[in-house]
Design a protein around this nucleic acid. Structure first.
Lengths: 237, 237
DNA sequence: TCCTTTCTAAAGGTAGGATGATTGGTTCTT
DNA sequence: AAGAACCAATCATCCTACCTTTAGAAAGGA
């Protein structure tokens, strides 16, 4: 049949083009994009057209404009921006429960689909977790723990799950359990069992391990239901 | 300390105001919003300011402009629009796995937090499912089945989970298993066990029921991994 | 030298008008 | 009744002008 030949507005094309520059990483997070006049010239469009495109990117959450200063990149994908915005209205317990849901499915799927290389990575991150505890380096522990989770989710080979997981919990991880969690118990109980299950491709055991794992996190967060929202890392204001 | 006194750009204020009109339902989905000239006058802003706000709503996915015709409402929330856009790039199997994850957690949480009223609703929808099978009315079956799922998710009393679930799978449900699924087995095996578990507040049994439930759906969808995307119902073109 | 104040250039914000392009409906013709 | 031509409504683009805010430089005082 015939092509669809989408007719797109000029500002829409500019939007798409700028978006690609951001998602492809040409304009990194935090960087200031060229001033309006330069972009006008480079793209060959008028100021209004350009501004409409930029306004779209601002509302989607990829850019932030500061009058008198410039326009800055604040996120690399629409999904990230929107989910982050939504997460900031959630309570800790809500986020934990959703993370639990995804962790569990990811662990089960990882049993089916993991590669040996991914298993190797998991073992490495688990080892790092253990080591950072000995050093009592909470910062490094959280980083290693996050990477371990991330690897398991990646091993699910479900891109939708991966996108949701990373965009929902990436920024969360930074401030989540800060000074609230003693990882000693957890790392000894949770990680080895989980990894062993994934190694043996035993989905049931993996799910059980995740259940125990999350239960430990949940316990210190009482059900203050809704009122305590997450306080993600400051939005630069 | 002093208040933050958010300084917001004019077009940002207009954006927020129009967004409220949409999310509050004053402008229903599919309806045409007033023309630019009228909005300019009503809001007391210039054309550029108004257009930048509208462009933002377009990019977020709440509006759609058609030159020579007008501007129309296409969605009621940012989350809905973005997640729908993301879902359209997913395969059926990916979506099912994520739904499984959320279904399972929702069922477990529903055991803890359901109200009696919610349990009553579940039983009613389950009954409807059964009846629609007898009538061989697939359309009505899918509707009742969706409402049952939805009620269970609502009973989790986790607003983040609810938002994600509804926005990810609402539109999906319409065209999901169309002509692909024979609900006989499923309704007899899955629903009663699940509801009984929720009634008895037995989280483990509920999770097992969901596992069986989803397994039935998954079986006809082979792992054609990625290539077959979802084909959500047409975007009104 | 160091801190505070003041000034200025640069950047984005708002405004209004002019013109083009597209669409849907109406009217006219055959 | 069917098709073609027309017309009005609406959004798309571009232009120029001026305002507001900011960061940083410059000047001044301790």
């Amino acid at each position: 049949m015939f092509e669809k030949l989408e007719k797109q507005t000029l500002s829409g094309q500019v939007y798409a083009r700028l978006e690609r520059l951001i998602t492809d990483g040409e304009w990194g997070i935090g960087s200031r994009i060229p001033r309006e006049a330069d972009l006008m010239e480079k793209l060959g469009v008028s100021r209004n057209t350009l501004r409409e495109a930029i306004r779209g990117l601002v509302q989607v959450g990829l850019l932030e404009t500061r009058q008198g200063d410039g326009t800055f990149v604040t996120a690399t994908s629409e999904l990230s921006a929107i989910l982050h915005k939504r997460m900031s209205r959630s309570s800790v317990i809500e986020a934990l429960e959703v993370q639990h849901a995804l962790d569990r499915e990811a662990a089960a799927l990882a049993c089916l689909r993991r590669t040996d290389e991914q298993l190797r990575q998991m073992e490495q991150y688990a080892k790092q977790c253990f080591e950072t505890i000995e050093r009592n380096d909470h910062e490094a522990y959280r980083e290693a723990d996050w990477m371990l989770h991330r690897t398991i989710v990646m091993a699910s080979h479900n891109q939708l799950l991966i996108d949701l997981y990373e965009n929902l919990f990436e920024k969360l991880q930074i401030s989540f359990f800060f000074n609230r969690f003693i990882p000693e118990r957890h790392s000894e109980v949770g990680h080895p069992a989980l990894i062993a299950a994934i190694r043996n491709r035993d989905a049931e055991a993996a799910v059980r391990a995740v259940d125990r794992y999350i239960a430990l996190f949940k316990s210190p967060h009482e059900e203050t239901d809704g009122s305590n929202s997450l306080n993600l890392s400051g939005n630069g204001e």
